[in-house]
Design a protein around this nucleic acid. Structure first.
Lengths: 254, 254
DNA sequence: TCGTCCACCATTGTATACGTCGTTTGTGCA
DNA sequence: TGCACAAACGACGTATACAATGGTGGACGA
């Protein structure tokens, strides 16, 4: 037996990740709002991978100076949501196929391990909140509001990690879930947005029953099925893509 | 069975974490060097938890402007090595007891899971490099150079994670190992620097034999023994401590 | 003599200006 | 007509200047 490491013996509940006092933000609430705004836009695929994020434009839009924007961009870069190229500026990260596999491997390790603790520590309030999130996810799907559904799905996983009580690991999951959204944007097939909300419902039931082991197993299947639904292979490069496009034009116009 | 999730099926080797092109650093090699310099100073306990890091002073020491220093400090803050207090500046993080437990829980989850992949992917070159690190760690301990030993110990764990081939998880381990050094500084007992280098030697042997399961179990024991060797309880809190002190004063003065 | 209040100073937060580099476009030559 | 080089423009990197805030020390009053 090389697995089944138990966690979640700490006493704190750690559910206030939103207002982490650890960052410099005097009136930084402003910057934090900008961060969340851009982050959400990326997660919701309103900003597609490869999209350029010019500092001047962002500074003007949000009504702050480039200094503040740069701080936000640096944070986003550290979380791998955007890529900072030396003299080229920022662009939404286009995850490589390897990166995609890594992220799902990491989620498999971390999120499954957290289920044990989550099953122990979950409260009635948590359960109803999670059920509400699933309900809203269903509604968004019915209304074809995929962007909202994607955001809710990522939030669901992050929330689940919060419940486990380990802020550090929850932070990792939060980051991994965000990057997963990026991966879906690149390697996902149309109409398939990754998480089956039915899976999420099952997950809640298992946790509510206090069965952490089964919840962990189910989470593993859940994540593997998401990864299996993707088409993870190295896409055509940027420039080759343009050349191919030119070739098609040449054929059709001839 | 709720554990034993296998990882490490990716094909890339991912051992070049040092030069991550993801950050903005034109002549940012300079800034990166500053980052490593401060980071190492913290890991080696040359900068103790609570130490203030004034921007002007750092700017002068490293010969750059405050702008660059602020960038470095922000990165260190995101990795939780330093704490940025709004108008007070930066100081080396003093991990709370809960934080300490969280970090070791997280390491238990992540590092054990990585052993399976590491055992599969480890090469002869890796093995000799790791053995060399252990040797140098031994030497440092013999020479009472605890600072070097601490740094080598953290590097050993980070290197081990690199071998597993998952850069994302390796990055997590790197961060967790750094924070562990901080935890040792606060909750460690004198003369005990955490890792027994004998443990590290055993770990290499198990990996060299390709026994990932045993290596994972051994890593679990290793981490637990480190945590057990600490005195993790709420130390001198800032405000609570003062209040307690006041209470004692009031009693003794009456 | 002690407590309180005010003013100054130290330090960080924010913005702006300038230098450097990449990109793109235009022109000239083969 | 196609390619290559160069110049101009635009965007980022860095530094510096100014503004805001909190802490500290001194002075005044009770």
């Amino acid at each position: 037996m090389s697995g089944s490491r138990q966690i979640g013996k700490t006493a704190r509940n750690g559910r206030d990740q939103a207002s982490d006092t650890r960052f410099g933000k005097t009136a930084g609430n402003r910057l934090d709002a900008i961060y969340r705004s851009i982050s959400e836009a990326i997660i919701q695929h309103r900003l597609r991978p490869g999209a350029r994020l010019r500092e001047d434009a962002l500074a003007e839009v949000f009504g702050v100076s480039r200094t503040g924007i740069r701080k936000v961009l640096q944070r986003l870069a550290l979380e791998q949501l955007i890529t900072l190229t030396p003299r080229r500026g920022a662009s939404v990260t286009r995850p490589s196929a390897d990166e995609a596999r890594e992220v799902f491997e990491a989620r498999l390790v971390v999120e499954c391990a957290l289920m044990e603790a989550a099953a122990t520590r979950i409260t009635e309030a948590d359960i109803s909140e999670l059920r509400d999130m699933v309900k809203r996810e269903h509604e968004a799907l019915r209304n074809r509001e995929q962007r909202i559904a994607i955001k809710l799905s990522a939030s669901f996983h992050a929330r689940l990690a919060d419940i486990s009580g380990n802020r550090t690991l929850a932070g990792f999951v939060n980051q991994l879930a965000s990057r997963s959204s990026l991966i879906l944007a690149v390697y996902g097939n149309a109409g398939n947005l990754g998480c089956e909300s039915h899976d999420h419902k099952n997950l809640i039931d298992l946790l509510a029953a206090g069965d952490g082991a089964k919840a962990g197993d189910f989470m593993a299947r859940h994540l593997k099925s998401i990864e299996a639904s993707l088409s993870i292979f190295e896409e055509p490069e940027e420039t080759p893509d343009l050349r191919e496009l030119f070739a098609v034009d040449a054929l059709s116009s001839n």
